[in-house]
Amino acid sequence: MTTTTTEPNPTEFEGGIVLETNGLTKKFGALTAVDDVSLEIESGTINSIIGPNGAGKTTLFNLFTGKHEPTSGSIKFRGVDIGGRKPHEIVADGIVRSYQITNFFSELTTLENVRLATQARQTGFRPTDFVRHHGSVQEPIDEARRVLERVHLGDVAQRRAANLSYGQRRHLEIAISLAADPDLLLMDEPTAGMSPEETRETVELITEIAEDVTLVLIEHDMEIVMDISDRIAVMNMGSLLARGTPEEIQQDDRVQEAYLGGGDRD
């Protein structure tokens, strides 16, 4: 047997680069929110972005998902430049985000919130999409229910989203993004404002999700970051300060100085 590697090998792709930015920059007038950021996200990994308030973390997500167009630099997803593409096209490509501030359809039920996301993949402007009752199209409903079970919201499927508890809302936020079937999921502070118990549950959920989705987290809780990340990127004032494994980041003097506040961790 010969071991030629001429044909693309799926396992090879597994370990490949899914997202790559080069000199990515975003300016708002005089303010440079993201400044010359070059990084790669490896498939199948958990990546965290940390940095002080206003460092440009959320703006980076906004660039990845097409909310903002880069001022300069490029973003490649699986080798294809996605800079300037529309948000819905980027979702179809496989990049989905969740929000720092809960951002869903508060007047609709929990189930309907998620069903809208599962429906997105198979509906369009075909004649049947205009005439068939949404409740009689089974697949998106079943799928939405599966996602709700996964985030432990199965019991409140028929409750109005506005009436969910804080922890449940944060889970719904994740559920909606999951339902859009991402290959790369960008999570903006998924544990913000949670009790220790809720945080633990959410971290469990995140590691579970990471089994089949590449993750990028923005997270302030250092304990979580160091615990679950494969790779960490540190941002400060728009620039990438450092990148590396949790161990490398913990030992990086610049990071210690700028962000971790000088070695109060061991």
């Binding site: 909310k67 948000p87 359809f105 508060s106 996301a117 997105a120 993949r121 949404h134 409740g135 199209v137």
Partner: peptide, 30 residues
């Protein structure tokens, strides 16, 4: 009928939260 269709529910979603509906994959303008 239209309002109850999948198309109609997307319109309702646009009313409820235009940004989010775009970021779960709908071409809102269309």
């Amino acid at each position: 009928r239209l309002a109850n269709s999948q198309f109609g529910r997307v319109l309702q979603g646009i009313r409820e939260n235009e940004e989010r509906i775009e970021f779960i994959g709908y071409d809102v303008q269309r």
